[in-house]
C-alpha cells in the first residue's frame, strides 16, 4: 500500500498492524466544558461482541455498554437499563462526550480510521496527530520506543469537547 506523506518533521508513516480482538484497559477523562467524567475504561472486543465498562476511580462499576449485531444496551450502577439499535447512541452517554464509537479502536491504536488523515508523525513513523471527522487526536507519548508500540497517552479534542486516555494494558484475544 502507498505510504502516506510524512508529517513536517516526522519519518514516513509506518503501516500499523490492527489488533482485531482484544481486552483494553486505560484511564479516561472526558469533558465537554461543563460536564466531566473520569475513571477507568475496560473494553473487551470479540467477534460480534463489544463490552465497554466504566469504573470509578475507586474501582466501582459506573456503567456498562454491550454491543452485538442484534443491538446495544447501557446498564448503569443504579440498575437502569437503556436499549438502542447500536452503541453509537449509548457510548457517548457513558463517556460523557460524543466520541465516534466505530473509530475508537483506531484512535486507541493510533491507526487512521477510514476517512481520517495522519497530519504528523514522529521520528519512528508513528502518528503524533491524526485528524478524523472534525476531531484532532494527539499522541504525545507512546508505551515504548518501538515502531509498533501502542500510544501511552491519547488526547482527542473537538472544539470544547475533550477526551484524554492513558493506556494501562492491551491483551490481544484469539
Amino acid at each position: 500500500c502507498a505510504l502516506q506523506p510524512a508529517g513536517e518533521d516526522g519519518a514516513p508513516l509506518v503501516e500499523r498492524a490492527a489488533i482485531e480482538h482484544f481486552e483494553f484497559e486505560g484511564r479516561i477523562a472526558a469533558s465537554d466544558g461543563q460536564r466531566a467524567a473520569n475513571g477507568t475504561l475496560q473494553w473487551t472486543r470479540r467477534a460480534g461482541y463489544d463490552e465497554w465498562t466504566l469504573l470509578s476511580p475507586l474501582g466501582q462499576i459506573v456503567a456498562r455498554v454491550v454491543g452485538t449485531p442484534q443491538g446495544a444496551t447501557l446498564r448503569t450502577a443504579d440498575g437502569r437499563t437503556i436499549e438502542a439499535v447500536d452503541v453509537d447512541e449509548l457510548l457517548p452517554q457513558m463517556l460523557g462526550v460524543d466520541a465516534p464509537a466505530d473509530h475508537l479502536d483506531e484512535w486507541l491504536q493510533a491507526r487512521p480510521a477510514p476517512g481520517a488523515r495522519v497530519i504528523e508523525t514522529d521520528a519512528l513513523g508513528r502518528p503524533t496527530r491524526i485528524s478524523d471527522s472534525g476531531w484532532l487526536i494527539d499522541y504525545p507519548t507512546y508505551a515504548d520506543d518501538s515502531a509498533e508500540a501502542m500510544p501511552r497517552r491519547i488526547d482527542a479534542t473537538w472544539g470544547e469537547v475533550r477526551l484524554r486516555v492513558v493506556t494501562d494494558g492491551w491483551t490481544a484475544l484469539p
Binding site: R27, I28, A29, A36, N38, S56, P57, L58, Q60, R153, R164, V166
Partner: peptide, 20 residues
C-alpha cells in the same frame, strides 16, 4: 490522576455512601 494530569472535584454528599 497524575498521568491524566486531571483533578475532578465533586460535593462529598453524592459520593459519601458510595466509596468504601
Amino acid at each position: 490522576d497524575p498521568d491524566l494530569n486531571q483533578v475532578t472535584v465533586q460535593p462529598i454528599g453524592d459520593a459519601l455512601g458510595s466509596t468504601p
